[in-house]
Nucleic acid binder design. Structure first.
Lengths: 346, 346
DNA sequence: TTGTAGGCGTTATCAC
DNA sequence: GTGATAACGCCTACAA
């Protein structure tokens, strides 16, 4: 491997100064047309590629951003990252991905490691864990490095966010179940560390109230994310004296587990029990008994997050204004809940 | 925001030279215990964070690697990236993701953009498109920057690869169908630009031959990746005079489309037609009529790719040896093909 | 053990 | 329009 050519090599070859080469390389305005052409032609011939480290050292910008998610191999996060990447790539940014596996300590570590490599911005979906470690985040806000929460956020002064209206999602899902004639609607939720789950729950509760159905705390159950958890929780609730006639699960995996267990017990979906999930993961559409779910448009969510970042870095005001975008979710009605009219959406 | 503290700031404060500070920061060996402690304590107090750009400029290493895939929001690629990330993060590397959307020109652009930002290595799953643009790749090989193909590869001298034995996957799938009593097995493939599809096809063909079934080119059909393509292709083949009694699809999405169409026509899976897919996408397990599929262990695939990269950079030999790891796939038998014994695997 | 000085490759500020 | 030079922050011979 031959050594990389630098502007000095070009300068030497052409008997001009490195400064002139640099100028010529950076546009036709700062130098005569003839030298501009000559330098660029020579650079090409010599296989010149600027040294990004030197440029970064000079400018203080890396043109890298970091994206922190619990895990990337899920449709929701994969699509959100895709959105960020697609919006930022044309602007010359590269996207670095980090996973936290829902562990709080990894969250802090990850932020620090991104800070250490001097990314120009950080996008984050926080993990579902028990710390109230807000210091790191406020530190970040003070450091003036653009920081955007997407989907799973914390409320930190000075930090922007793009989220989905989970309250509305929960409300839509529950109202839909009520319209299908369900009166005894269970809700599978998660611990309420994360706003998203809390809000889905609150939307559920509000919908019940607005339709004159008494809220029964016995029908609300905490469960993790997996299909297996969905099955277990369903098994438990079906044993109760007054089993539900509908389940609104705060996640599609839970909904899938619920459907599996309901069927295993010889009951029918939606006839005996209606089920609605959340996130519109691909499988919810693919199932023969397709699953009604709340679509959050993760791709768009990612793109909007990216846009906020771009706005933030291009604004020259010292005070960055905190922005909060809330996307409206959409209920996609499918077989698992359509009891009255069986016409199903995509 | 206050200016970042540098080793000079620390040096000044302690009335020592910046060189000593640098040494103290880089380990206790090159400096007296007392200065080591003092410097590190002071650095901490002053909130010192080394400037990665300066270090990179000095060392020529970015501690970044690039991963190029057609798209990230699919279980297979998401998991592979996850594997790479998990293996490399503990070693101090960050993972930059790039997507090509199966477009050849983006492929070249992307490689160049990664080269420009001086990543320490590149992982790539090539796109399915019609160029024979191997120059970029051989260029790369000459540049001495570690480059690893995973899953979808080209044969380039000097470039390592980690792939799945697709021939065997195709062979396993087809043999399984034959064992279920199928004699007229259709194969949905893709254009054979990509080795993976070609090899799945060859495996299929070999299995037929080994079991004394005559190969019928009419039963092999080209189709893209989507569920819709699977439906269309199935519709077409079911119209033929001698419709198949089994379909081996080179991808789960095609298999899903096939199943949907078969059912829509009032036929039964697996009783009338057995179906096997490829990739073991999550939904293939989740379906009520679960889909038999070939598992490629993408997570492991990513991890092994990462390991090859690590080996390559740590070996001090100038000549990097080309490595080719081939993983053995595994057929996971599920309802869509189990006609004789209905016991299904996970 | 510590300090001095030069270099990594660029860009920006002067001066000519 | 062009050239000399300093600066970005760190590391590392070499010297003391």
């Amino acid at each position: 491997m031959t050594k990389k050519t630098t502007i000095y090599d070009i300068a030497e070859k052409l008997n001009i100064s490195s400064a002139t080469v640099s100028r010529a390389l950076n546009g036709p305005d700062k130098v005569s047309k003839s030298t501009y052409d000559l330098v660029n032609k020579t650079a090409q011939e010599m296989g010149y590629r600027g040294n990004i480290f030197a440029k970064a050292l000079k400018s203080g910008k890396s043109y890298n951003v970091g994206v922190i998610v619990p895990w990337i191999d899920t449709d929701f996060f994969g699509s959100a990252i895709r959105g960020i990447q697609e919006a930022l790539n044309p602007k010359g940014y590269h996207v670095i991905i980090c996973q936290t596996y829902d562990k709080a300590h990894l969250e802090v570590e990850t932020i620090n490691s991104l800070l250490k490599i001097q990314v120009d911005g950080i996008f984050m979906s926080i993990s579902n864990s028990k710390t109230d470690n807000t210091e790191v985040f406020s530190d970040l806000a003070n450091k003036n490095i653009p920081f955007v929460f997407f989907d799973r956020k914390k409320n930190i002064k000075g930090v922007s966010s793009v989220t989905v209206d989970d309250f509305k999602g929960g409300y839509l899902a529950t109202t839909h179940l009520i319209e299908q004639g369900c009166k005894h609607i269970a809700h599978f939720t998660n611990n309420h560390q994360l706003e998203i789950f809390k809000n889905r729950y609150l939307g559920y509760k509000q919908a019940l109230e607005d339709h004159g159905i008494k809220f029964d705390p016995e029908l609300v159950i905490n469960a993790p994310y997996t299909v297996e958890d969905g099955r277990k929780t369903t098994k438990k609730i079906l044993k109760s004296k007054t089993p539900p006639d509908a389940i609104f699960a705060a996640h599609d995996f839970l909904a899938l587990g619920a459907i599996q267990e309901i069927k295993a017990q010889g009951l029918k979906v939606p006839d005996d029990i209606c089920v609605v999930g959340f996130s519109n993961e691909p499988f919810s559409k693919f199932m023969e008994l397709s699953i009604t779910s709340v679509n959050q448009s993760p791709l768009e969510l990612g793109k909007i997050s990216a846009q906020i970042f771009l706005d933030e870095i291009s604004s020259n005001e010292k005070m960055k204004s905190e922005k909060h975008v809330v996307l409206t979710p959409e209920l996609i009605k499918r077989k698992s809940s359509m009891r009255i009219n069986r016409e199903v959406e995509r």
